[in-house]
Amino acid sequence: MSNVVVLIDTSISGVIRGSATELLVAASRLGTPIAVVVTAQPISAEKVRLLGQYGAATVYNAVSADVATRLTGPQPEALASAVAHFSPSAVIVSNTIDGRDIAGRLAARTAGGLLLDVVDLRIGGDAIVSTHAVFGGAYVAEWAIASRLAIITVRLASFEGAAPEHDPELVVMAVTADLTSHAAVIDAVEEIVSNSTRPELRGAKMVVSGGRGLGSAENFSLVEGLADVLGAAVGASRAAVDAGYVPQSHQVGQTGVTVSPDLYVALGISGAIQHRAGMQTAKTIVAINKDQDAPIFDIADFGIVGDVFSVVPQLVRAIEDRRS
């Protein structure tokens, strides 16, 4: 089996992020996972064991004092070094803002072929075959790379299950490249802490979203109330975000988060294509809107033409009644 290099996401302070499991699951589909961890200080034996439990056969710890100061500077260096060391068939990174920057630099440097925003992976003959959801899942495309290094960014919350456990070998290397000419400087960093107990929007099993029809930021509590009774994440249409009802991180759609939950509830959302592109692959769609011609009803499994301000409170009570 060929080696597959995986870049483990870490915070700037060195904490291993939750995406490690799914990245290693993705890698184990293609070969033997080599986990690359880029940190300011060598990682602990405990973290090495943990990555082994997640599926890493080898942990390649690249140590660089620049992690906290040079924006995505040491990571491409570490990956290029891991590629030279392990001759992998593929390099996997998460399809995040940092991951894409790192993958782009690595691809330009190694002339590897890019497979971006991948939702599934398999080996097909002598090629690596990736699945992509195009235009919000309106199309599904498979692309392949053979006989050259594949550089893959995987969409988070796409790979489930667990990879086989290993007792990993640890290799430590120091990143010595001078990054000053081409890596930007990090002046300050603040971890985004979610103070919400609600599920993360990306990968949520249920999502309740609100649109312009809510009318104000205060009224958005209606969306949150229904989300809480369902145990759902809170989303929003671009119109609601543009109107300032909720932060941009809640935006579901073409230019926001793409979700594929079991249940998607759209409240006061007209259903412009921009929004549908981010949620149309949901298993069940429920829409409540006072405009009976709203395009959201064309794709809703259950639609209610009515006033969200009267229907939603009734709905919350009815769900609570059924449960008790």
């Binding site: 309106a138 790379i145 009803f297 809703a300 259950f302 639609g303 209610i304």
Partner: peptide, 19 residues
């Protein structure tokens, strides 16, 4: 550098119950 293997257009979603 990548080669197309297949593309599939997902069936358009129909509407269900509307009350």
């Amino acid at each position: 550098k990548s080669i197309l293997v297949s593309t599939l257009e997902r069936a358009a979603r129909g509407s269900g119950t509307k009350v």
